[in-house]
Nucleic acid binder design. Sequence first.
DNA 1: GATGAATGAGATTTCATTCAT
DNA 2: TATGAATGAAATCTCATTCAT
Lengths: 220, 220, 220, 220
Amino acid sequence: MPAATRELRSQGKKTRARLLEAGMQVLAERGYQATRVDDIVRVADTSHGTFYLYFENKDDLFAALAHAAADDMAALADQLGAVGPGPEGEAELRTFLGRFHETYERHGPVIRAWAENQVTDPAVLTLGLDTFGGIAAVLADRVAESTGGLVDDALATTILLATVERLVYFVTSRPLALDAGPLLDELAGMLHRGFFGAGATAPRRRGAQSKPRRTTRRSR
Amino acid sequence: MPAATRELRSQGKKTRARLLEAGMQVLAERGYQATRVDDIVRVADTSHGTFYLYFENKDDLFAALAHAAADDMAALADQLGAVGPGPEGEAELRTFLGRFHETYERHGPVIRAWAENQVTDPAVLTLGLDTFGGIAAVLADRVAESTGGLVDDALATTILLATVERLVYFVTSRPLALDAGPLLDELAGMLHRGFFGAGATAPRRRGAQSKPRRTTRRSR
Amino acid sequence: MPAATRELRSQGKKTRARLLEAGMQVLAERGYQATRVDDIVRVADTSHGTFYLYFENKDDLFAALAHAAADDMAALADQLGAVGPGPEGEAELRTFLGRFHETYERHGPVIRAWAENQVTDPAVLTLGLDTFGGIAAVLADRVAESTGGLVDDALATTILLATVERLVYFVTSRPLALDAGPLLDELAGMLHRGFFGAGATAPRRRGAQSKPRRTTRRSR
Amino acid sequence: MPAATRELRSQGKKTRARLLEAGMQVLAERGYQATRVDDIVRVADTSHGTFYLYFENKDDLFAALAHAAADDMAALADQLGAVGPGPEGEAELRTFLGRFHETYERHGPVIRAWAENQVTDPAVLTLGLDTFGGIAAVLADRVAESTGGLVDDALATTILLATVERLVYFVTSRPLALDAGPLLDELAGMLHRGFFGAGATAPRRRGAQSKPRRTTRRSR
DNA sequence: GATGAATGAGATTTCATTCAT
DNA sequence: TATGAATGAAATCTCATTCAT
């Protein structure tokens, strides 16, 4: 009987949290597929038996991690306000990226597993798709608002999101000693210019050609 | 004794090719860690015994795939000419992206495994780092040339490359029915403006602000 | 220290009884081998710790159940009077079967575990063999008395007993909605005719033929 | 990929047969629940890996054993001819019991697991119920034919069958050194008199009393 | 008296690799 | 050259029992 169905006392809660923490750490180090229960319990300094006291199996622990990540990511979308074409719009976008970065620092391994399509458990997979889809949809709305409906392609926004994810992944996870701030400044600027600026056109505009678009922009 | 040390007749070559092909397919479907020899031989319609006739072990097959990918990717860098700030520079970049895309269609699973840091075999890992590093270095050179040495951060270029990889991954692998052409047009434009354009600043330039840059661009 | 060595207050007695009750229920549902301490404590609505407060281990609880069953079964044998060849003999047998049935309703799972040879604990196994053997011996005596010593095979009587057990098991445990009364009437008649009737021969009498016996019976 | 889906060469067939044989032996020794893969492979003198080459899991092996048993048991029912009230009817019954006994010698452990309701795998459980039910139905038909429709209770026949099973179990499995022949003679006689004889009444006839029935029989 | 937590031995299952034909 | 068979180390999971509160 895993923990989901049981009442936990303070010690139990602590152990469960330690296992989740350890799971996250091992996930970060080895990736979804290569993570073994053995690694998790060693990091959590407990036994196999204890693991199965709190989780049905490995996927169950990942599901718990994933739900926490999904909650925080959903909050991200909720807090994204209007992104106008002016500097205040860019600032709004920058704030969003900052929060995305913070969320990534907390849930990076899970987000990465989703983004890299490593998840096999259908429930967790769906949760990931929904979560990413939700953010993409909000982004698409903001883009459409900002560009007066010229750009509203949710698909293109998904790709945009994936690109943001990858950049933040590099900033967060790689031992690059990169200063996140300036990079996110820059990214915010690029995205604002590329997607929210007056006259910006979506990457996927049907029949879109590079020349006309360039012309448009040149002439503004 | 695996195939590397043996002469192969035509039938042997065919079998080896079938195994490589199958390995690539399974790699695409299941990812590096989850790929089992059993899957490969089933797809290749042969036996476990035969597999080890041609490859020392699982990693050996991946190494073979990786070397082929590395060769084609190295060629990518070799063929990238100067990328000036004008339209012909953007066209050059667009051509590079087109070839990157073609390469991805052939070697996507391997490139992805590298980009997602899934590889454990040290030799293959090094090969990947070298390959990506080589392209990043050439990109960094071109950027430096184009901007007169203002921008030359190889690290930033690595990130740029990773982002390109991700976008091309989405275009190539996802069942999005995306038309690659326009997307690559758009990406070429963005990258050219962002990295190679007159007055462009590198993502990592400290104190970079979006406004001045926008102004600069507007005036061009 | 388990309960056997301790004095129990009224609450303790209640808890112990609840565990025994639960043990019996789970034994009935899952069988001897598949019964887990976890099931028992869940049914008894208590904890693992509490279980081991009252029983040394799983087998100890079964031993307690078994002793209760053995006592009641021994009483069965004690109360079996002479079974003459006449109707009053059959009535005596019928009464015995009725009490067997009652006992089965109370201790069925334990009796069944014995009859099906599921018990591994040597002490409990011996107890079962002794208990069944005791009843079989009394039955054999009664048969021998009734047939004037012609039939006295304890082994055959054991088999007879096992068959009775099986029939009663079906009547008791299966969801057949069978009315026990008529079935036991019938069974009493069959057994009386078959084993206690004038001229009846034991199943194991060498060279026994059905025809002569039928003739004999017809002529009575 | 277990053997069900693969082609097997002679060596493979031999190994699979050895595993089935070992499974039957361990099943006989330890019973359904207590049988471990470890025991089976030790008896079959092979490895765990090999076991899973031929069977998906323990239940899969039992399912294979069960299907073989079910086939042979179905044949039992098919071969049971009319059982008239005369001696040739009893002989027919005796032949049936003899074949039941032979079948039990081949498939005893499986039949016993079914009869003792030890099976948990739903498919195997159903197979057992169907198999026993099929035989019981044929028995019930024969009884009904023989008694002119007076007796046709399938339920009662199920119990009859269970009793036969138990007797044969004792004869077959216990180290009683019993001579099966005379016992089966006797059993055939009892069953013939009890169920197929002229004027016999079913165990479950509603309102049946032992006295009237006895009278009836006496007067025949 | 009672309980939730923890443990570890043992059972099941997977899979890369080797072997015999 | 090819293959089915076999292996065993390692991973997952279960559960009777002990422990600390």
